[in-house]
Amino acid sequence: MEGITVQRPHARTASACSAALLLAALTACGGSAEADTESPTAPEGVTVQAGSATSAHVMWERASDNEGITGYDVYREGKKILSVPATKLMTDIDGLTASTAYTFTVRARDAAENLSAPSASVPVTTPAAAPADEEPPTGPTKLRGTADGGRTVTLSWGGSTDDVGVTSYDVYQEDQRIHSVPGTRTTARLTGLRPGTVYTFTVRARDAADRSSPDSNALDLTTRSTAGAPASTAPTGLRTETTARGEESLVDLSWDQPDTGGTIPAYQLFLNGGLTTTIVWGGTPPTGRATYRLTLTDPPGTRYSVKIRPKLPDGTWGDFSAQRTVVLPG
């Protein structure tokens, strides 16, 4: 009997060790001992702005999850109307009715399709239709701003005018709308930016007929770097000048080269976010301010965004310059 009594604990220990080995093997092979059953947190900071008589702009703050957010679902009156990827924290809702009250909520979603609780409900009422609104607003003026830290900037501008009324102002970064505020406001605070990064902002006014104004002046702001971060390698002072030559358009670029501790042998030039050409100097690379002429054959009025980045002495590509917008001349 004593031998049996002694062996039983060893049998239980062997079983426990086998279970531990099995769990370790599953983990090593990519298995998961437990499914993801934890829901994300509910999005906070939801705001809704009526962009026109038939549209609204919904924005929210990033939610969190133990595994990671994969998307957000937007609801109107409790019914899901669209989904967006996790990289987006805003969306436009079209097809609304003028002079109508709506309520919106947002829910976060993870890879296991767990949904967060709904955000707080946010009401909005679309303005009355303005069939007599024939003119777009004037462009905002004197856009200015400050970098409040590594991830936040504050913008302000001079108000626009419209034959009926301005309903909202839209903030653009590299030709992508990233924020909207009511037409009664001429300031915006932008968060979630990257430290030590140059951003180019413009603002457009919008009226109840959903017509947008021309761009404001472009504003370059660089967020503060984090402690110990390497210095920026972005070219600065990028300027553009366009002229027509027959059926061609000439775009002359000039910029101040960054201090990289060595010679910059080449630059990459991007149009509308895509790599267009690599600028390689035919002889000795210039020092100080550099220039380059780009020839385009697109029709007059074609709009392009332009930015560049340097090839560093170690062979890697550096930071992007601020972006410039050019419109080809007629």
Rank of each mutant, 00 (worst) to 15 (best):
T186F: 04
Y172V: 11
R144H: 15
V164E: 07
D94A: 12
R177G: 03
D92Y: 03
P131A: 00
G139T: 09
G149S: 04
K142M: 12
D92K: 08
P137K: 00
A112E: 04
Q176V: 15
T91M: 11
A117F: 07
T91D: 11
T97W: 05
V166C: 08
E174Q: 14
T154P: 01
A130T: 14
W157T: 13
I93D: 08
S116K: 04
T126S: 01
D92N: 10
A112P: 02
D92M: 11
G139C: 06
G165I: 15
T141P: 05
D133A: 02
R177V: 06
T91Q: 06
P195Y: 06
T167V: 08
A132E: 15
Q173N: 07
S99V: 14
A120Q: 15
A132I: 15
E135N: 14
T103S: 11
R109W: 13
T138D: 07
Y172D: 13
R189L: 11
K142P: 10
T138S: 14
E174Y: 09
P127G: 13
T105N: 02
P136K: 09
T103H: 00
S121A: 09
D148V: 15
S119I: 12
T126H: 01
A132S: 06
D92Q: 11
T141L: 12
R109D: 14
P137I: 02
D170T: 10
S99T: 14
P123C: 07
D133R: 04
V106M: 06
V106C: 02
P118G: 00
N114E: 13
V153A: 01
V164C: 15
G183K: 00
D110K: 01
P136Y: 05
A128Y: 05
P137Q: 01
D170V: 12
L155E: 02
Q176M: 12
G158R: 10
T126G: 00
E174F: 12
L143A: 03
T191W: 06
A130D: 15
R151S: 13
S119R: 00
G149D: 13
D92F: 08
P140N: 05
T103Y: 01
A120Y: 04
R194A: 12
V166N: 09
P137R: 00
D162H: 03
E134G: 07
T138Y: 01
V106Q: 02
P140R: 08
T146V: 13
R185H: 10
A188E: 04
L96F: 03
A108G: 00
T126D: 03
W157R: 15
P136M: 09
L190C: 04
L190V: 12
N114S: 00
P195A: 05
Q173H: 07
T103V: 11
G95F: 08
A120R: 08
R177F: 03
V181G: 00
V122I: 14
T187V: 12
T100W: 06
S160G: 06
G165N: 03
K142T: 10
G95R: 07
W157P: 11
D162I: 09
D175P: 00
Y169F: 15
T141H: 01
